[in-house]
Design a protein around this nucleic acid. Sequence first.
DNA 1: TTTTAAATATGAAACGTTTCATTTATTTGT
DNA 2: ACAAATAAATGAAACGTTTCATATTTAAAA
Lengths: 356, 356
Amino acid sequence: MKSTHTPTMKDVAARAGVSLGTVSKVINHIPVGEKNREKVNLAIKELGYKVNTYARGLKTQETKMIALIVPDTTNPFYARFTQYVEKKLYEKGYKLILCCANGIPEKEIGYLNLASQNKADGIIALTYTDVSSFIPAQIPIVSFDRYFENHPVPLVASDNFQGGFQGTKKLWELGCRRPVFIRFRSKFSSETDKRLEGYVAACKELNLPSDCLDLTDPPDIDASLKAYLEDHKDSRGKLTLDGIFANTDHQAYHAMKILNQMGYRIPEDVQILGFDGIRKYGIDDSALYVSSMCQPVEDLAYLCVEILLKKKEGGVVPSLSLLPVTYEYGGTTRQSNTPMQAYGASNEQQCKHLGI
Amino acid sequence: MKSTHTPTMKDVAARAGVSLGTVSKVINHIPVGEKNREKVNLAIKELGYKVNTYARGLKTQETKMIALIVPDTTNPFYARFTQYVEKKLYEKGYKLILCCANGIPEKEIGYLNLASQNKADGIIALTYTDVSSFIPAQIPIVSFDRYFENHPVPLVASDNFQGGFQGTKKLWELGCRRPVFIRFRSKFSSETDKRLEGYVAACKELNLPSDCLDLTDPPDIDASLKAYLEDHKDSRGKLTLDGIFANTDHQAYHAMKILNQMGYRIPEDVQILGFDGIRKYGIDDSALYVSSMCQPVEDLAYLCVEILLKKKEGGVVPSLSLLPVTYEYGGTTRQSNTPMQAYGASNEQQCKHLGI
DNA sequence: TTTTAAATATGAAACGTTTCATTTATTTGT
DNA sequence: ACAAATAAATGAAACGTTTCATATTTAAAA
């Protein structure tokens, strides 16, 4: 009695009265005599046959799965990135294996190996820790924002340098003359470090001082900000700075909070510009509400997928792809009636930044 | 020349000078002579051998993957749920296949079938559309919040009835005497509908009117709220209601916004209580800031995983598991110095709600 | 018709594991 | 030192596909 037995291709073949090969062809949409195709399809339906992915994978060596490594889905930016990656993969017939690394290096490394174990066809890595030396060779992998030393991994990112540069120019255009850049100093070199470089480059071009504050780790982020602001008051209590360019929207939000607490008006006393554009993509009105240099999350996600799949097919892909960021007004900068200008860094600076 | 050939168990066996079976045992941590184990491990290292998941899966019929279907990872609640599911699965040696259904029924159905195709060992479904009739039989599946008609799918959810009940009592304790419940009327029956039932039950017990406003779809959510409030003013412009119990934190936030716009004070004029507890789990201070009946997201996620895996092992699992929600002060209700009481619905009401 | 060419269908082999009935080596008891 | 008992290692078979060389059918040409 084989009642409790998942039907296999052999069962289908028997029922339809054809050979195994014919069934296989029908399943894989390879042309086959019309009569047979119908017989096979009928048998499949009657038996409720489902292809066994393992048996197939064993032959084809394809899983149709892509692993995505992110630090934390709870972060709106990553959540959105994940969502778009999944969407694109789905359209292309792939499934997403999600890894929330949460800063656990072994976890990141484990998922990096998924492809070598035939559990995934490729990896999109937005790693947090330094896993350069664990990048498996010979497998399709794309990195978002992180630069892996000594490993030729295609990198996709926003044009952080341009973002930093243009944001600074925009602040200047809106009247800011004493900006300060605030950020965490990241432990590992990341594409996002270029934001500061862009800021510095623009300040130089504008003959502005390029102050920068390195925030300390949470939970003291507010404290270090406050201390910095107290240090930058004149005798009348007026701030000697008039603009804050924050490395992320989140940091911008903190700055906003502190300034409010200290009684300064935004944007009248101090303008604030963030980076990421979380608000634009926020699911509800409660999300961050700051002016921001906005990353094209959707396009970034799509590009990662496209490059990864192309690489998987053996195609030649760019080792670096930078997508432009855009200025989005969010209430913490002065209103301006002139549209955003497409500021560009000078050729010289651009070259220096690209290292060419 | 076999230089460009992924090493297989056979290669390892040859190199170590042992049989295939021995290699298999070493890999699966089945006791084996010490000398041989060392030889095999050495060979594995030297060759860089990785087990081929497909070949293994073909034999074992296990994928060590679980699919999670959520409507949208961009929603902080789902994002957090996803994160915890992934964490628990990882601990148990499973990987997560993520489906952001985004309201696309075919997508949900496709992922529901993943298990029958041997791509996943089980499914955790937080579906948006009505997919009752597509639930595959015989495969491990757990539902979060959604009730599938005619299908004995284990359901995990917050105790929404108790939450509605206790929240109402809490509002009353804080002085509210004219509450109104606001919500979207959901298209498909969901466990969350019980929040309203709990509210109604509590109102009855407290001899309060149990007003309820069904919000219209976005983007008119604000409009319908505003209209309702305008309708509930007395001649002097004072509101005839003094408390809003919102079905979700998000709706509570909208209520907060409108009330602010209309010049009412919170919580002095109107108290607001939300449901979900997003703020408590928010990654930054910009998240919703309302008093809320807080769902134990972490425990809910863990429970889903545990029940799923138990079911997969053939264990007997509860068909319904409800976890308690807790009141969290968030600024939109009056301060109270009495700790939250563990209010319970009366026995009679409890029975009615459970249908027993 | 018969021959030839084109189109289809066939089924054995292979993919890389796990499993299990056997065989071989080791230990124990006398 | 020998038999019996126990432990360890072996390798063929099986998992359910895909593939490809071969066989069969069908259609076209002579």
